[in-house]
């Protein structure tokens, strides 16, 4: 069955003068999925997102959202889209509540029910003045703002920066939104974050799309790095299984990358006295190295 496409970007190029923002980027986001948009600083995530919202003009290419032209039908599209910008300012000297009500009214809505429940879940005090907020609380206002109008599509540019507890609550909220059929497109430069919340991920670097992958496939490809410190001697051979790579010994510690068959490794470990153990997600840089090493992309960008 063909998935309904919510965002369809075809050969998007955005130049800032003669500086490349994104180059020949094609990407689709399907209805009901959480799509992660991963890339290092300056990769072109914000450029792509702001092009979708017609905040930027395109140099070349096509973007359709809900089957409508992103620029010509921008106002119609925005009636169905919630957006959290990567960087934004609030109207100063008003209460958060009235600021949010104002934004609701711009969306033609007056129902504050969802605004209230989101604020409660994120522990955002609606009676504070907008200019008295901490960075995290300001981000909460942005998150509430992007979700409160209950739009079909939610676009978020780096919604990270909450404390870990709040971040978990935020992910729960996103999953619930997804259950209600919402489509979510969010950028990040944190692989762990994308892995924990997204169904698919698009990886971008230097303005060019490197790969679009299902999270499970990505996880299998990249694996997780396990570091173990033993209280007794061990041999590397003990841990050589299918699905385990990069095994080495470093300062008496065992380091290996697990792609699958975690179970075998755990069983082998149980024969030893273990002092310490650490399971890490690949860093973004390692991920890039991986994809480059596999020769999936050529070095891109005349930026």
């Amino acid at each position: 069955m063909e998935q309904e496409k919510v965002i369809e970007i075809t050969n998007l190029t955005k130049m800032y003068g003669n500086h490349v923002g994104v180059k020949d980027l094609s990407l689709t986001v399907d209805k009901g999925e959480i799509m992660g948009f991963l890339g290092p600083n300056g990769a072109g995530k914000t450029t792509t997102i702001r092009s979708c919202l017609a905040l930027l003009t395109k140099t070349a290419g096509e973007i359709t959202i809900f089957g409508l032209d992103s620029h010509r039908d921008s106002v119609t599209i925005r009636k169905r889209t919630g957006y959290l910008p990567g960087d934004f300012g609030l109207i100063p000297s008003v209460k958060v509540r009235s600021y949010l009500k104002y934004l609701l009214s711009l969306h033609g809505s007056s129902s504050t029910k969802k605004m209230g429940s989101l604020a409660e879940r994120l522990q955002l005090d609606l009676d504070r003045k907008t200019n008295e907020l901490s960075k995290g609380n300001k981000l909460k206002v942005g998150i509430v703002q992007s979700l409160m109008t209950d739009e079909d599509l939610i676009i978020m540019d780096e919604p990270s920066g909450l404390d870990p507890l709040m971040q978990q609550e935020f992910y729960r909220i996103l999953r619930q939104e997804q259950k209600q059929g919402k489509t979510i497109f969010m950028s990040s430069h944190n692989l762990a974050e994308v892995e924990s919340i997204c169904n698919r991920v698009a990886i971008i670097r230097k303005g060019q799309l490197i790969v679009v992958e299902n999270i499970e496939v990505l996880q299998k490809k990249t694996g997780k790095v396990l570091e173990v410190e033993f209280n007794d001697p061990f041999k590397i051979d003990e841990f050589t299984f299918k699905g385990v790579s990069n095994i080495r010994q470093d300062n008496g510690r065992l380091i290996l990358t697990i792609h699958e068959n975690l179970d075998n490794v755990i069983k082998a470990l149980s024969n030893h006295q273990i002092l310490n153990m650490n399971l890490k997600t690949y860093s973004l840089e390692q991920l890039f190295l991986k994809y480059y090493a596999e020769g999936e992309v050529g070095e891109g960008g005349d930026a």
Binding site: T76, R78, D87, F88, L90
Partner: peptide, 14 residues
């Protein structure tokens, strides 16, 4: 200057 345009123009305001 205060970066309020992104939020403004994410609302259906032309």
């Amino acid at each position: 200057e205060n970066k309020r345009m992104d939020v403004m123009f994410s609302a259906p305001i032309s």
